[in-house]
Amino acid sequence: MQRYWRVLKLFWSTAIAAELEYRLNFVIAAVSSLGGLIGSLFGLFLFYRTGYEFPGWSWEEALVVLGAFTMLQGFSATVLAPNLNRIVRQVEQGTLDFVLLKPISSQFWLSTRTFSPWGLPDLIFGLIMIAYAGTRLGLHPAAYGLGIPPLLFGFISLYSLWFMLGATSIWFVKIYNVTEVLRGLLEAGRFPIGAYPVAYRIFFTFVIPVAFLTTVPAQAMLGQGHWGWLLGAAGLSLLLLQLSRWFWQFALLFYTSASS
């Protein structure tokens, strides 16, 4: 376990050192996230402009969901996208061999190898948005703490789904874009799940668990959470994580390297 911590520190410090070579990129990323933030707020404003409310969600409460979504986006830009989108290339070029030979879990290596600070502005903006909405709603400081566990469960669930999709490249090799499908569907997490029609709600709860990623953490923060949902989020994330491990072991059975 300690060894993994040490390796992780090495991975990320080298990755950050490499990224700092491109400081201008960071400025671009920050400006882009700010633009995205304004756009998201505008999108939400269009619904609330005429006095309509998502059933059971005031403007500030919907902002909390948007904040959780922005943080999730930041998390995927910092850790998930840079690492998991590379699995495809590793398989295609056969460099996965080198990863498999290392005396360390290959899933760990593939999932944590790089760290891109590009997503940090999103994480920060998400936090600001939640803090702003929380203050307007007069949330108790401890309430924010209640939102952390479900948010972490959300991160884990998202990671596991993304990793499993990436792992399918063992069979299909050229599927750079299968994760784009997941990303496109995740956009639904911008808004509370209650804002969708029934068919959408079922799909985004049971097929692609978007509801657990943003709505459940927001509800926990707002004190509207039900233990059932929280337990569901925890169970789902652990189940998906374990599934992703099994799936990776299973996928590796079919790995034949690039030239053999």
Binding site: F47, V178, G184, L185, E187, F191, A199
Partner: peptide
């Protein structure tokens, strides 16, 4: 997969239809 990744308008369709 590229076609499926363009589901963005369909998500907003649900929201606006209900709204």
């Amino acid at each position: 997969f590229w076609v499926l990744s363009g589901t963005f308008p369909l998500i907003f369709m649900g929201l606006w239809a209900k709204a």
